[in-house]
Computed example of a mutant assay.
Amino acid sequence: MGVVVSERRAEGTRRRGAALENAITDAAWEVLVEQGYNGFTYEAVAARAGTSKPVLYRRWPQREDLLIATLTRYWRPLDIPDTGSLRQDALTLLRTVNAERARAVILMRIQLADYFRETGTNFSDLRSRLRPADQTPPFATLVDRAIQRGELTDVPRPERVVNLPFDLVRHDMLMTMGAVPDEAIVEIVDSVWLPLLSHEGEPHSTTIEQLS
């Protein structure tokens, strides 16, 4: 056993640059999945990566720095579809989220519960840190393109309405602890989101007198 560990450490010392950092964040991800945030320590990650704690400290002085680097590596930007149809764009994007993000979303909610308590942050805060500052939210991009194509009227829409499909899919992931059935994705788009977007583009006929 000692020989194996020594060989891994020797191998680790020969890695440089991106290769070393990728090996460390890969090991860190494995530790996070298996042990949660409480087990996400420099000791555990260094041992799994076959390197030393000083190597980690030089790159990520704080444990949170290492955590963000690890999550960023596994929270890759989504490809934004451009099929020429808002409905098909939305379905394609949600299916991609369902296939590529379900496990990560569930992991971050469960394994990072102690991190959120310790830092006083939440999932939304973390997602903002993982998304590039200048990146437009995916569904906002889809809506903008639909307006340019003439599928939607160009009126102000609340951010909550625009991003609703992702919020509903994420909710279902967390409620069922797994991927969302495709029929639920179609229902979210066809029965909830698209009608709501169209309604947001229409004049509101309800008056104060009607509400009285």
Rank of each mutant, 00 (worst) to 15 (best):
V3D: 14
V4S: 14
V4C: 10
S6M: 14
E7R: 12
E7Q: 14
R8A: 14
R9Q: 04
A10T: 11
G12D: 02
G12E: 09
T13A: 15
T13M: 14
R14P: 01
R15P: 05
G17T: 02
A18D: 09
L20N: 04
I24L: 07
T25C: 08
A27Q: 07
A27C: 11
A28S: 08
E30V: 06
V33I: 15
V33C: 09
N38C: 00
E43F: 13
A44P: 08
A46N: 08
R48Y: 07
A49E: 01
T51W: 00
S52Y: 12
K53F: 03
K53G: 05
P54C: 08
L56H: 00
R59F: 01
R59Q: 13
Q62F: 11
E64L: 01
D65W: 03
D65S: 09
L66W: 00
L67F: 09
L67S: 09
A69H: 05
L71E: 09
L71D: 06
T72C: 08
Y74T: 07
W75R: 07
R76Q: 13
P77A: 05
L78S: 12
P81D: 10
S85R: 11
S85N: 06
A90T: 06
L93T: 04
L93H: 01
T96F: 00
E100T: 13
A102N: 08
A102H: 09
A104V: 07
V105Y: 05
V105F: 12
M108P: 10
A113W: 00
D114Q: 13
R117V: 12
R117F: 08
E118Q: 12
T119R: 15
F123N: 03
R127F: 13
S128C: 10
L130M: 06
R131I: 15
R131E: 04
R131H: 01
D134Y: 08
T141W: 04
I147C: 04
R149G: 00
T153V: 10
P158Q: 05
E159R: 10
E159H: 06
R160I: 10
V162W: 00
L164D: 02
H171R: 12
D172C: 10
M177A: 15
M177E: 15
M177I: 12
A179R: 13
A179E: 14
P181D: 11
P181V: 00
D182N: 06
A184G: 01
I185V: 13
V186P: 05
E187Q: 11
D190M: 07
S191P: 01
W193V: 05
P195D: 06
L197S: 08
L197V: 06
S198R: 13
S205R: 14
T207I: 01
E209S: 15
L211Y: 03
S212M: 11
S212Q: 10
